[in-house]
């Protein structure tokens, strides 16, 4: 089943085109890794997908619900109600967590399900505690974000997104703000979600991780998808010179 369909997305900032006719289709259960040099438009693509940026061209639909589409050359977004409903289909995990610092861990997880989705309190709390357990954060529910390590904060952020029961989860470089020791605990959690068949789109610089968890790897450069396909093929045996250059540089960079 198709969860997300982004077609011919174009996006400019101050007259500079950052996304040049990009299409992305995500099926249920699929794990997609997006790689590419910094400035290639990866974050912008995710931000367009979750309506943090408005697109200048193309269309976006989730599970058949049209969120944005082009009419006579101009993009029209759906009504506020439709967009609100569609927001319930996805979650986003930020590079720098963006937890609410004045809310305890458990409140970070339960507040939106209760206030936004109006789900029953007891059920929400029960589910949130189960999520914390899965994230290895048992016993930390009354802590505040500043009392946690970066890795723990990012796992809380993942749990917060999951508490709303999204159909698809986006990650924008979830480990880039973390020390190497803390990176692995976050990647482990994401790998576990992949095993549970959670649909995910992950922007990452962790090539080994991408190769292991992704069903498909997309290489972006200069606002276009240069190539995409099987992780082993893209990462071990890329076709395009730009992909090769990027991967070589990354290898070099990592020593």
């Amino acid at each position: 089943m198709n969860l997300l369909e982004m077609k011919n997305i174009r996006k400019s900032f101050d007259g500079v085109e950052v996304l040049k006719d990009i299409s992305l289709s995500v099926d249920e259960g699929e794990v997609i890794a997006i790689i590419g040099p910094s400035g290639s438009g990866k974050s912008t693509l995710l931000r367009c997908a979750v309506f943090l940026e408005t697109i200048d061209g193309g269309s976006i639909s989730y599970i058949g619900d049209e969120a944005a589409a082009e009419y006579n050359g101009a993009v029209r977004y759906a009504s506020a109600e439709t967009l609100h409903r569609v927001r319930g289909y996805f979650g986003l995990v930020f590079q720098n967590f963006n937890l609410f610092p004045h809310y305890s861990v458990i409140k970070n997880l339960t507040d939106a399900p209760i206030k936004v989705q109006k789900r029953p309190r007891d059920e929400v709390f029960e589910k949130a505690r189960a999520l914390l357990k899965r994230m290895g954060l048992e016993g930390r529910e009354n802590a505040y974000p500043h009392q946690l390590s970066g890795g723990q904060q990012q796992r809380v952020a993942i749990a917060r997104a999951l508490a709303l029961e999204p159909r698809i989860l986006f990650f924008d470089e979830p480990t880039s703000a973390l020390d190497p020791e803390l990176t692995s605990e976050v990647l482990k959690v994401i790998r576990q979600l992949a095993e549970e068949k959670m649909t995910m789109v992950i922007v990452t610089h962790e090539m080994e991780f991408a190769r292991m968890v992704a069903d498909r790897v997309i290489f972006m450069d200069g606002g276009v998808i240069v190539e995409q396909g099987d992780p082993d093929q893209i990462i071990k045996d890329p076709r395009h010179a730009r992909t090769k250059a990027f991967l070589n540089k990354l290898d070099g960079g990592l020593g």
Partner: peptide, 29 residues
């Protein structure tokens, strides 16, 4: 930070709720 507004928006909070319950308490502090 913009991230606080963005996180709230993706989680589905309304603009008014975001300001009153998420932004303002942090501002007061």
């Amino acid at each position: 930070s913009r991230g606080q507004y963005e996180a709230a928006q993706v989680l589905g909070y309304s603009k008014a709720h975001t300001f009153v319950y998420i932004i303002l308490p942090q501002v007061v502090k």
